[in-house]
Computed example of a mutant assay.
Amino acid sequence: MTTFGIEEEFIFLDPRTLTPSDVGAAVHDELLGRARESRFVSHEFLASQIERSSPVFSTAGQAEADLVTFRTRLAAQAERRGVVAAAVGTPFMCAGWPSVTDSERYHQVEAEFRGLVTDHLINGTHVHVAVPSRDAGVAVLNRVRTWLPTLLALTGNSPYWHGADTGFASWRAMHMRRWSSGGCPPPFADADDYDRRLARLVGVAGTYDTRTVWWNARLAEGHPTVEIRVADAQLDAGQALLVAALSRALVVTSLAEAERGDPPPSVDPELLDAGLWHAARDGLGGDLLDPVALELRGSREVVHRLLVHVGDALDAEGDHERVRSLLDRLHADGTGAERQRAAVRRGGVAALGELYRTALVARA
């Protein structure tokens, strides 16, 4: 089986106002080393955040057990401090300049990106999938890039900003567009081409090292993986597991296509960029860019096309039934953005905070 791992970013919020609460360092110190599931906890950019990198998984079952266990521990630590741990792309409410975690790297980001920092209260889900080489990884990037809008539509979970509904499923994705190296990666000839073009970006537009190239999919630094990072943080473990399983299937499918010599799909970059914007706005609530037909189609039709495209890989990894079940639940309950809006309609800020608490520890 192809191995994978998941990075999740969480934000701590005041339970009454759902504004960020700067307890990330205290929770980090308490969790670190306490259990196997907590070994890979790290600080994030803001003092109100925490990041957790999972162990390497072979099966979705392993991932499910691990994610639920860690999220349960995280929720308990948040409750001890009188805050809510939320897996959302953006907080419901924020005000003023956020507190940056006290580290040399994060202060350099703050210095380079200046006024953008005030809006950088964003949290994502990043999926790492193993590849046999960097050249193979580039072949994967050239193919998965066309499906990034579909993954974004499935995972939009940030409809609110400053207490107002933005009208977007993923306001986080719109914030990311303002940074100098976001969006879909361009196509590359091979790994040498990738490395050469990445190196040329260093020093330009705030990109002070290769890790600050924030494409929605990239080769990981220091790991033999492709990192797919288009998704918002996911309300519950099931939604995180869904994007992980689909990401793995896309990578496995892409590797098989490259081995057969199938050329990567050709999608005009401006169309792909517009498709990402469209997915960030409408999520699954309207049409999506069909990367095969190269036109807007109904979201369910495009998601079905994705399932057909990766069907053999889902079978090979033993994920087909689980993915279909998680997709059925997603269509029934709504994306994270839709569930957040439903909670606010039902009971305002209090109901939204309760959704954050209960979803965090729900089983996949």
Rank of each mutant, 00 (worst) to 15 (best):
E9R: 03
P15S: 10
A35P: 14
E37D: 10
F45E: 05
L46R: 08
S54K: 08
F57I: 04
T59L: 13
L67K: 03
F70R: 08
R71H: 11
R73A: 15
V83R: 06
A95H: 13
G96C: 06
W97A: 14
W97D: 12
P98Y: 12
P98M: 12
H107D: 08
E110P: 02
F113P: 01
D119H: 06
G124V: 03
V127K: 03
A130M: 12
A130H: 15
V131A: 09
S133G: 05
L148Q: 05
P159L: 02
W161N: 03
G163M: 09
G163N: 10
G163R: 09
T166E: 04
S170V: 02
G182S: 09
D195R: 07
R211Y: 08
T212P: 00
V213D: 10
P224K: 05
T225D: 06
D232I: 02
A237Q: 02
G238E: 09
A245S: 12
S247K: 04
L255T: 11
L272I: 11
D273C: 04
G275Q: 08
A280G: 15
L289W: 07
E295C: 13
R297F: 00
R300Y: 00
E301A: 11
H304C: 01
L306F: 02
E317T: 15
H320R: 15
L326D: 08
T335F: 05
E338F: 00
Q340P: 12
V344K: 07
G347W: 13
L352D: 09
Y356P: 03
T358H: 10
A359G: 06
